[in-house]
Design a protein around this nucleic acid. Structure first.
Lengths: 348, 348
DNA sequence: CCTGGGGTAGAAAGCGCTTTCCGTTTCGGG
DNA sequence: CCCGAAACGGAAAGCGCTTTCTACCCCAGG
């Protein structure tokens, strides 16, 4: 059982077959079919190309990866894919990766940093060209150290690492300017006459949640308004719903004239909770979000929010990760801009 | 430069290092660390495990793939990821894959069958354990033949192929019972008093679109009602918006009492178009969708739809693909059920 | 006519792992 | 007490490809 024809799980012709059929050596075939800085004579070149075409040759990616030491793959980690924020980013990542001839492997971290760490370890052993980490960074996380070590080791060996949405540990990052965006929103709200806001958002350890809260608070305060309440829960639709229920049930909702959610899905959950309680969002109380996901403009009332170009964020992160040359360390800050809609009408 | 210590792009310790440190052969180390049906004595076993731990050994996936002939990977193809239908399915796929210790690589086909074909070819050369094809199948597509050939060749060599959402060519599939779901919806609508429906949906070559239309039409007809208009466009939010605009602009919208969209995002686009024209969805005209995506219950009025367990669909497809044993050929039909909400009130 | 050098082909050494095939050791049974 | 089987360790042959290093050919220049 040691003939040269033992192909168990593989299929299709190998490079050796192509070389044989073209009557050239393996090396020559490889040089023709997979760019090399060495030239191959026209005659041989044609013979190889012809043989490859005739055999319908396809390179074996794992073998190439093994020989080259790196796979044509971009690894993307997201908290969840079932959320417009992440799927928009993933969409941009996929687009750019495709344009670079890379495939995308995706891992879901479920907002669990232990899982995030083990996913990074697993993905790393696939030898991807780049690892994109997209999920809200938190402060004081016990796994952050190990994660950074892992990432740095990765970059030390030629891998590219990019954080999306938040910078971390001096590695490359493409970030949202949450504070500025939130400031803008706060200023607009104050300008519209709002005075007391309830902020419903994620854990205080979530940097995104904190940044947005801070921006909002400072802008409001600077305009004589205030963040009167802060209610926290998960950073998703359900969290928004629950925060709002609690505010309603505790009777404290009456103290505010606007509910500022940490993101659009929370805002949408909030609106549903309000309506269930007979409170009309946009009429009895204003509601705002962040991100400007597609459905923000489809709910009623249309949602006031801070738009961030999410797909573009993914695209740029990927482009950055795949750019040739030095892995220029630094943060790219993406600006958001306020989109005023019906959910926050001018107060009379 | 030909020492045994030339590790260019690789990092970390290799299995050889572990074996050396444990004072055993490569074979033994491999047998201990990566299950094999051969037993290893307790003493050596412990030495290897200890060495691996001390060195923080991680297997090189491409190398394992190459040696084993298959990668611990599930390849998923979706039309787009930036759509709740697909991201919900992807989410289920990722979950199940993770539970099986597999990673997911994803490719976006942009509803373009040529791209779909080339993606399958590319993904196939990664030697994934399974390929999951999720995107609406169309009739009469020039690339379907080549795609099927590709898939069959894949399965012939031990790969698993599963279509999600629609069966094709006798390969395994996990499908939605669109016709039955649509019939159910049609019957309910008729029962609520609706008589003339406008169906806004995708191309007549899209099987999903056709099946839902047929089900709706037959149920309505059977109840003395009718599908009075059919307007087609892309199968997404924008398509729904545009279809509705056209119906409004042409004045034909007055002929119907309900707009049945081919899916929820189209329905949501339709509601927005209606509102822009001063028509109140759920009051002046009913609107329905399909799938029951998360936001269906968050829009106003809440959307009547046919619920399909999408994440579960993804999970089951993956489980099926990863199940040991025979690749039982057949279709799994997932039933939907009608969810009546405010967007289709009983007609007085 | 010989030599050096540019250009191109091929042989072969890996890349890190799995697995077959042997060899050795150890035991239990006759 | 001997033999065969069972149990386990190791050498080595791949898996399909890249890339270095050597070999060769041909031509210009001395």
């Amino acid at each position: 059982m040691r003939s040269t024809r033992t192909r168990v799980s593989s299929d299709g012709p190998t490079l050796t077959d192509v070389a044989t059929r073209a009557g050239v050596s393996l090396a020559t075939a490889s040089r023709v079919l997979n760019g090399s800085n060495r030239k191959v004579g026209q005659v041989n070149r044609d013979r190889v190309l012809r043989a490859a075409r005739e055999l319908d040759y396809r390179p074996d990616l794992p073998a190439q990866t093994m020989a080259r030491g790196t796979a044509p793959v971009v690894a993307l980690l997201v908290s969840t894919i079932d959320d417009p924020y992440f799927s928009a980013i993933a969409s941009g990542v996929a687009e750019s990766a495709d344009a670079h001839g890379m495939t995308v492997t995706i891992a879901i971290t479920a907002r669990d940093s232990a899982l995030e760490l083990s996913s990074v370890r697993l993905l790393r052993s696939q030898r991807p060209r780049a690892i994109l980490l997209c999920g809200s960074r938190t402060t004081n996380d016990p796994h952050t150290g190990a994660l950074l070590t892992e990432m740095r080791r990765f970059t030390a060996h030629g891998g590219r690492a990019v954080f999306i949405g938040q910078s971390e540990g001096g590695l490359n990052a493409v970030c949202l300017d949450n504070v500025a965006g939130a400031c803008g929103l706060g200023a607009e709200l104050a300008g519209l006459g709002y005075r007391r806001a309830a902020v419903i958002t994620g854990s205080e350890r979530m940097r995104t949640a904190q940044e947005r809260l801070q921006g909002l608070a400072s802008a409001l305060t600077g305009s004589g308004a205030t963040v009167a309440l802060v209610e926290r829960d998960t950073f998703d639709r359900t969290g928004g719903y629950r925060c709002t229920r609690r505010l309603i049930d505790s009777g404290r909702l009456g103290e505010v004239d606007v509910v500022c959610a940490g993101n659009d899905v929370m805002a949408i959950g909030a609106m549903t909770a309000l309506r269930e309680a007979g409170i009309r969002p946009g009429r009895d109380i204003a509601v705002t979000g962040f991100n400007d996901i597609d459905t923000a403009a489809d709910v009623t009332p249309k949602l006031t929010t801070v738009r961030f170009p999410l797909a573009d964020l993914g695209r740029r992160a990927t482009d950055l990760a795949l750019a040739p040359g030095d892995p220029a360390v630094g943060d790219l800050l993406v600006e958001g801009h306020v989109v005023l809609r019906d959910s926050s009408p001018r107060l009379r």
